[in-house]
Design a binder for these strands. Structure first.
Lengths: 230, 230
DNA sequence: TCCAATGCAAGAGCACTGCTCTCGTTTAGA
DNA sequence: TCTAAACGAGAGCAGTGCTCTTGCATTGGA
């Protein structure tokens, strides 16, 4: 385990980790746009061209950071859900939403990297999909739990949306009613609207008590997907 | 009117407009991050340093484009509202939301510039506030109209949010009940969550029938702020 | 054990970027 | 008419991502 292959392979793993670590530091400090390969190399005492042995391009380094950010957010959300324990699904929902907001405020540049404007000329590879889905999967689980316990409040869908709702349900949560899945997907996107507006300054001079405002809005989102507060 | 001052002032206005025009073209084609002062100057047949006589920095040029983008979106939304005519407020709401989405899909880079991650080291000056508020003001007007016609559905606010809700109402729409204003601000942010997720690829492999999905979600938002569909 | 193949760091260099400074020229106002 | 401001052009600085070549060190097979 300590030396799976030769010393060379071990060194490679260590250097790769050091590059990612320094890149993450610079990302957190300055943002993705100011993340410079040369600065990372400089800080690590190596020359910029040497860095290309580990990451073929700046975009590949960014991809690694994107995956890390998704996983960090996913882990935080999952931990918050676990810590919430066996409470009403609606309260679990709010707890997870609040943790997403907390994580975003603590890691603004990472958040901007994964949920802000995409870097031009960059398209995220398939590898980012599973980490990106973690929060969504978690929210689905909460609604599933509520459905198993006492059902969810049901609403009517417009006819034009019914086939799509059925398709999404089949794809994401076959055990849930299509209206619930549709509402869930919308609430998922709306959650990030709330977080993004606060983080990117759109709430400046508008909302002051942001935590209380967010808590209320998250509770309304829960209500929208059919979760009820006991 | 044609020559308000001398030929020099007129030329200045024309050159400034040409720079903004070319910059807007490059922004639409490549995105804000790839907008290059030198490329703009090159395309206009001038040398890069000459451009600094008109815009003191790249950020100032970006600010001009941001204001234009906000105004373009605001005009589109206002036009869509005017075109909708004297229909039920809930339907006006959906019409405006759909126009916001349409504009965003037609101008993805402009949308990313104003609602995506902020450019690092850049803080929007005060001048951007009024254009940025146009869509919000329009939505407030719709709810006000509904309130004047037949009131809006009222919900209860948690106690911790009441002072903030009153403050927001006093600031944004003193003639509306605080719960309505709170719901309105949340729905405003959530609208951009829906649009951003579609535009930035978060709906890939999740939502297919995006127009119908969005229409339904926008109607649910209207419902959330107390508007009713006749 | 030796040796060829490979991995790696370093350096030079290319084509860019935003931005500054200087130098003549043109223009507008006193 | 004279002067100060505005202007375009050019050179130059410090920085960027990325490529290519050059040597050295390590590795795995004969």
């Amino acid at each position: 385990m300590s030396t799976p292959q030769g010393a060379r392979a071990r060194a490679r793993i260590e250097v790769t980790a050091a590059i990612k670590g320094e890149a993450r530091r610079q990302l957190a400090a300055e943002g993705a746009a100011r993340l410079s390969l040369r600065a990372v190399a400089r800080e690590l005492g190596m020359v910029s061209s040497a860095l290309y042995r580990y990451f073929p391009s700046r975009d590949d380094l960014l991809t690694a950071l994107i995956i890390d950010a998704y996983n960090s957010l996913g882990e935080a959300a999952e931990a918050a859900d676990a810590k919430a324990g066996d409470i009403a699904p609606a309260r679990r929902w709010v707890a997870v939403c609040e943790e997403v907001r907390r994580w975003a405020l603590a890691h603004p540049h990472e958040y901007a990297l994964i949920y802000g404007s995409p870097v031009p000329g960059y398209s995220a590879p398939e590898t980012t999909i599973p980490p990106a889905a973690r929060v969504g999967v978690l929210l689905i689980g909460i609604v599933r739990d509520a459905y198993g316990r006492h059902g969810v409040a049901r609403t009517r869908l417009p006819g034009e949306l019914e086939p799509e709702a059925r398709r999404m349900a089949a794809e994401l949560a076959p055990d849930l009613p299509p209206e619930a899945v549709t509402a869930l997907v919308a609430a998922w996107a709306q959650l990030y609207g709330l977080v993004g507006f606060e983080l990117f300054g759109q709430f400046n001079n508008v909302v002051e008590e942001r935590e209380a405002f967010f808590r209320h809005a998250a509770a309304q989102l829960a209500h929208g997907v059919g979760l009820v507060f006991p």
